[in-house]
């Protein structure tokens, strides 16, 4: 136990942990949305995130931006960033919807048992991962431009805040608030809540169940695409199996916060990012995942449905 290490680096660990957690949170939203409606863990969601990182990187490279280029002006950088963001969101959401159409919908039509969906999910995940793996030689890719500066902007209580961190944390919160509003205040969102609460009654009331399910996959894909661009900004790195670790952590975050609950997913993500960082400093990076999962189990012992509980359909969502 190295408490001095923890306290000495506490501000920096907090800011970097929150940044990492914000990315987990965005991916976690995808798990939680699908679970809330279908009671299904969409294991292929990690790959939806991964293809987004490649889509953004390839877009940037195609526009002539690479990691060895010196940073250009704010306007150009913002333009390139948005181009990458649109590409990642488009590819990620298309992948998510494609997974739903090919891996889940046919099973649902035949009233397959839940276990079949689980295997189908894992299968879809492997297929996407292997396709990208073969297409990219399983090599690590680091060729990404520095579109948002990672030089410190100002210091709060000893923690250096960089523009990248601000963009990621603020961006993630904006996405959450937008999604929360969409689910709670629009007609389509009401449909999502209705199907989450009681699919059969919702269908009787004229809600198109198939369309709602397609919508939640689409929304999850959008969130994953944004997360992919944020991960690119933060790490400037991707590879074919990047999704595995992020997916696992994001799923953990979703369970920690209460799977099926949007705000829970974000809370869980941020918390997991912080816990991981504090644990790394306190007992060494090799124990990072161990501590994170001990915390998860401890939370589930006292709150079996996660910190905020499961509730996409209920009022709290």
């Amino acid at each position: 136990m190295d408490f001095s290490e923890l306290f000495r680096n506490f501000p920096e660990l907090t800011t970097t942990g929150l940044t990492q957690g914000a990315i987990y949170a965005l991916v976690a939203l995808g798990y939680t949305l699908v679970y809330g409606v279908l009671r299904l863990i969409n294991f292929a969601h990690s790959e939806v995130f991964m293809v987004g990182t490649f889509a953004a990187m390839w877009t940037w490279n195609a526009l002539g931006f690479n990691q060895n280029l010196s940073p250009s002006g704010v306007l150009i950088s913002a333009g390139v960033l948005i181009a990458g963001l649109l590409a990642a969101v488009a590819v990620s959401s298309a992948t998510a919807v494609a997974v739903e159409l090919t891996a889940y919908r046919p099973l649902r039509k035949r009233n397959a048992p839940p276990l079949a969906f689980l295997i189908s999910a894992i299968g879809a995940s492997f297929v996407i991962m292997e396709i990208i793996g073969i297409a990219t030689d399983r090599a690590p890719y680091g060729n990404m431009p520095e579109l948002v500066s990672n030089k410190p902007l100002f210091t709060i209580l000893g923690a250096e805040i960089t523009p990248v961190q601000i963009v990621i944390v603020v961006g993630a919160l904006v996405m959450l608030v937008g999604l929360d509003w969409f689910i709670n205040n629009t007609r389509l969102g009401r449909g999502v809540r209705a199907v989450a609460q009681d699919p059969d009654s919702a269908a009787l009331m004229g809600v198109n169940k198939g369309r709602v399910i397609g919508l939640v996959f689409l929304l999850g894909g959008v969130m994953a695409g944004v997360a992919a661009v944020f991960a690119n900004l933060k790490y400037g790195f991707t590879k074919f199996n990047l999704g595995f670790l992020f997916g696992l952590k994001a799923f953990t975050a979703a369970v920690l916060g209460g799977i099926g609950n949007l705000r829970g997913a974000v809370l869980g993500g941020l918390l997991l990012g912080l816990v991981e960082n504090y644990a790394s400093a306190l007992v060494g990076t090799q124990f990072r995942d161990l501590v994170a999962f001990v915390v998860l189990i401890a939370v589930l012992m006292f709150r079996p449905t996660g910190i905020l509980g499961e509730s996409l359909g209920r009022a709290r969502a």
Binding site: E5, N9, E12, L13, T16, G17, T19, Q20, K234, Y235, F237, N241, L242, F244, L245, F246, E276, N277, S280, A281, T285, R288
Partner: peptide, 11 residues
């Protein structure tokens, strides 16, 4: 396969 090294960097 770790990607985020923030804690190690801080140390």
């Amino acid at each position: 396969k770790q990607v985020d090294f923030a804690a190690t960097v801080a140390k």
